[in-house]
């Protein structure tokens, strides 16, 4: 059970909803700075896995460790976010009645307490950081617009930008290219690749050409457990995987 060098260590995680096992003895290790793609048919448990990591859902059994020795299963969403795990939701979730700029400002690391937030003045380096983030996700010219007025793809990018502003060590990105055009999809792949390296990134996606574009190790989930793991070419050649995707 060597956890050395891993940023995320899941072992034997089981989540059942009224007897139905959404996660079934799931084990997964993500290395520091690694990017991993997770694929699997609908209902495989991908989102539930992210719920467990971020404290939204408590598993019935198993172990979830962040970094060297931080037990995730005893902490709530806020604590886990502050530890440095950021999450992009499957359905784009931004603050619609705030401007793009304010969305990123709110996500900016630090100043989370009530009194702190009340008296906080935006520092020049924070301003610079927000501009940097907006530039990274290609929304620099959109800063003053209300998030509600962004296109679907732009909202996805804004949410990724908010993740970056949090400066997490681990990013969980649930279906970032759902509803995007091909160009936007390719742009998102480039964006995530740029982010990876300094931070570990776990990407859940159904879009195979996008996963191919990422060119990273792939984990296939099925019925709440890992079915296969390896490069995309290798796992997509495995009979079990083909059966899951095409069979029945």
């Amino acid at each position: 059970m060597s956890r050395h060098g891993s940023i995320l260590y899941l072992d034997g995680i089981t989540v059942s909803f009224d007897g139905f096992k959404a996660l079934n003895n799931l084990s997964l290790i993500i290395g520091e700075g690694e990017m991993r793609a997770i694929i699997g048919p609908n209902g495989a448990g991908k989102t539930t896995m992210m719920d467990v990591i971020t404290g939204k859902t408590r598993p019935q059994s198993g172990e979830a460790v962040f970094g060297a020795a931080v037990d995730l299963l005893t902490r709530d969403e806020t604590e886990i976010a502050r530890l440095g795990i950021g999450r992009k939701f499957q359905r784009p979730s931004v603050f619609e009645s705030h401007t793009v700029w304010d969305n990123v400002e709110l996500a900016l690391a630090g100043h989370r307490g009530v009194a702190e937030a009340l008296f906080h003045r935006l520092a020049p380096q924070e301003k610079q950081r927000i501009e940097e983030v907006l530039d990274t996700v290609g929304l620099l010219s959109q800063g003053r617009r209300l998030a509600a007025h962004l296109s679907h793809g732009q909202k996805q990018w804004l949410e990724i930008g908010m993740l970056l502003a949090q400066e997490p060590q681990l990013l969980l990105v649930d279906e970032p290219v759902a509803g995007m055009t091909d160009d936007e999809t390719a742009e998102t792949a480039r964006l995530l690749k740029r982010i990876a390296g300094s931070k570990a990134v776990v990407v859940v996606e159904h879009d195979m050409s996008f996963v191919r574009e990422l060119g990273v190790k792939v984990t296939v989930l099925h019925e709440g457990a890992v079915l296969a793991e390896g490069p995309l070419e290798q796992v997509s050649a495995e009979p079990r995987v083909i059966e899951v995707y095409l069979g029945r």
Binding site: R87, F95, A107
Partner: peptide
């Protein structure tokens, strides 16, 4: 203030605000 913006964030997307920390 930033707190005011956080309040509006809570109003519009409570769990999102929580996952931001």
């Amino acid at each position: 203030s930033r707190l005011g913006k956080v309040m509006v964030a809570v109003r519009d997307a409570e769990s999102r605000t929580r996952f931001i920390g």
